[in-house]
Design a protein around this nucleic acid. Structure first.
Lengths: 172, 172
DNA sequence: GTCCCTATACTCGGATAGCAAGTGTCCGAGTATAGGCGG
DNA sequence: CCGCCTATACTCGGACACTTGCTATCCGAGTATAGGGAC
């Protein structure tokens, strides 16, 4: 039992997108190159983020993905649910209503005690996820990541915008 | 993304086993019949519980499964980990160390910020699970389950011990 | 010089295979019991 | 009458198929751009 690998990719992508200047987009191919993951599959995860309204997608030349909201307004729960769906970890199939000792369905007024207990744990997990935003992640990354990695990331972003002209407005 | 169905079965089985008198065992086939689930597959889940030391298995005639500890000493986390394994929900593959902007592996002294954040949520989930025991579940079931279901369960247990002689000590 | 049009190159998004893990099933090894037999 | 032995029936546990969902990939529809041509 583990979360899809796409969750990890999506979180890292959102963190990187949060570092971009306002209005600048980054295509899926570049995001995949930066993270060293297969582009075709990452594209699917990004589409899920776009469907959830977490990122905006711009098509055409110099298009790509950018955050739809401020990093501080995107919680980890938003990203997880965009990739994994909003179904709960534990799904009660009401097996208490099956078997020879079960009563009539109408008699079960209270929810299953086991489902309730598992649901509380689920909520604790979700609460913790929604208390952290992409902005918090970015802050910690800037503070604790290796200096060399930060510098290289900056240089790489520049090189990408250099070759591809990632600035949104034409030079005019 | 959801927990295995075996978790639900295991939790219900533990709850029922907790209602048995001390030393009485219930075979996998009877547990499956009571819950209306396939016996062969449930057997696999029960074996996992036995491996984890949550239940004791007695082989041979009139054998079966019984709780290895008091219901109050078995947490929901114990059961979940017995079935699903003790791996964390989120598994960091260190993609931050991949790609063209990554630094040398040795430079990454702090753990990944994303992994830390996800780990906190994971711990909140586990903490909530370990704060609830089978005894708590049993208490709520007795208090809120339909009277008819409780009565039928008692009768069914009697009928099973009647035909199968589930009492551990011979009549003498 | 300015405007418009077309060709281009690049983007996302959904439709299409491959694979691992969860789901479901079966049969064999092992054991406590029950009854019969001998003392 | 008591104890021992054997046959029995029942148990668990691991080895064997099948289905669902995650992983991975590709190609087509659509769009903003850049350049050239006409006015």
């Amino acid at each position: 039992m583990h979360l899809s690998e796409g969750v990890e990719w999506a979180l890292h992508c959102c963190t990187l997108l949060g570092a971009l200047p306002d209005g600048v987009s980054l295509p899926a191919g570049k995001l995949a190159e930066y993270h060293g993951v297969p582009a075709a599959y990452l594209s699917k995860q990004l589409a899920a983020l776009a469907n959830a309204g977490i990122v905006d997608s711009t098509t055409g030349r110099y298009g790509g993905y950018r955050l739809a909201r401020r990093p501080g307004d995107i919680t980890l729960l938003d990203v997880v649910e965009a990739i994994e769906g909003d179904s709960r970890l534990y799904q009660c199939t009401e097996i208490r209503q099956r078997g020879p000792a079960a009563a009539a369905s109408a008699a079960y007024t209270s929810p299953c005690a086991i489902a309730r207990a598992m649901g509380r744990a689920d909520e604790a997990w979700r609460r913790e996820l929604s208390n952290q935003t992409i902005a918090d992640i970015a802050t910690e990354v800037v503070a604790r990541a290796p200096q060399e990695a930060l510098a290289r990331t900056g240089a790489w972003l520049l090189s990408v915008s250099g070759t591809g002209r990632a600035t949104p407005a034409p030079a005019k």
